[in-house]
Amino acid sequence: MTANLIRVALADDHTLFRQGIREMLSTDPGIQVVGEAATGPDAVGLVLAERPDVLLLDVEMPGPGAGPVIRELRRVRPQTQVVVLTMHDDADVVRDLLNCGAAAYLVKTILRDELVVAVRSVASRSDTVLLSVSRRTVSQLDSQRDRAGNSAGPLTDRELEVLTLTAQAFSNAQIASRLHITQATVKRHLTNIYAKLQAVSRVDAIRKATAARLIDPDGGPLR
């Protein structure tokens, strides 16, 4: 066994995808896959049990969402570097998860060699952040950074859209339909909103956002 073997854990709710990634990484003699998880809580448990160097984490899995999972892992096992591996090429998601402590954000269209390089890079250098996203997303991230000083609050544009529709009494399913996203993504945005506003419910989040003048009393954005 190689002395500097990189131990990797996989967290994705699609068994076939996990098996494919395991087989892909197993072709590298310097990488060992030490376990798999299909939910957020199981991913945290797996990391605590196996103490891998790297966790490959999907964005949408059963459980609290990728953001809370990453924050929990940064608290209980900061030595494990979290690499987000997802189909979501979205600037808001990228920024949120990097802010939570992800070491890399990779879209699932990357090649096998690119994934191996990313795993090796985050395992050897904890002070780096890796991105493999579209030029459009990079441009949006730059735009968000440029206007950060003029932001009306701690919420992203997408989170404000979700909260605005929530304040107008739309259900998660209706919000998902209007914004052309999944219900799981709506739930993830709401989880992030609650965390940022320190809210305990939809009503509490709306009240606090209104008080902070992020949305008006009728649910409209104030940007």
Rank of each mutant, 00 (worst) to 15 (best):
T80F: 02
T27V: 02
D142H: 13
V84Y: 04
G101F: 03
E60C: 07
K108W: 12
V129I: 15
S126K: 14
D12P: 01
R18G: 07
H180F: 11
V8G: 05
V84R: 10
Q144D: 15
R213D: 15
P78V: 10
D218Q: 01
A123H: 05
R120Q: 13
V8M: 04
I31F: 03
R147Y: 10
V200E: 15
M24G: 00
I21R: 01
I175C: 02
L197K: 09
Y105C: 01
T128W: 11
R202G: 02
A123R: 04
A212S: 14
A118V: 04
S132T: 10
G65E: 12
L197G: 12
V94I: 07
R145N: 13
L85C: 09
E60H: 12
V119S: 00
V84F: 02
S177K: 15
V107C: 11
I21P: 03
A169K: 15
A43T: 10
N99P: 00
D142A: 15
V94S: 08
A199C: 04
T27R: 15
R18E: 05
A38Y: 03
A91F: 01
A209M: 07
G35K: 00
K196F: 06
L25D: 08
T191G: 14
S151L: 11
R223M: 09
S143C: 13
T137H: 03
P29Y: 08
A102H: 08
V133N: 03
G220D: 03
G30L: 10
V129L: 08
T128R: 14
D157I: 11
Y194A: 05
D89P: 09
Y194W: 08
Q140L: 15
T39S: 14
N192M: 08
P78W: 08
D96V: 12
I181F: 02
M87G: 10
R207C: 00
G35I: 01
Y194S: 05
Q140W: 11
D12V: 00
I181S: 04
L46N: 13
I215W: 03
A66R: 11
L5D: 00
L56W: 01
I215L: 04
L16A: 07
D113V: 09
I110V: 11
I70L: 05
P64C: 09
M24Y: 00
L16Q: 10
A176D: 11
N150D: 15
I206T: 07
R7N: 06
G65I: 12
S143M: 14
Q198M: 13
D96N: 14
D28N: 08
R158M: 06
I181N: 04
Q174C: 07
V76S: 12
L57F: 07
T2A: 09
V122T: 01
A104M: 00
R18C: 04
R136F: 12
M61G: 13
H14W: 03
S151E: 14
L56F: 00
R77F: 10
V44E: 12
V93G: 06
Q198Y: 06
F17H: 10
M24F: 05
S151F: 04
L48E: 15
L190N: 06
G101S: 04
S139G: 15
E161H: 09
G67F: 03
S124Q: 14
L97Q: 06
L214R: 04
R158Q: 09
N150M: 14
T166Y: 00
T2E: 12
S132G: 09
I70F: 07
R112V: 09
A9F: 05
V107Y: 09
T191M: 06
H189I: 01
E50N: 13
L46P: 13
L16Y: 10
R158H: 02
D90M: 05
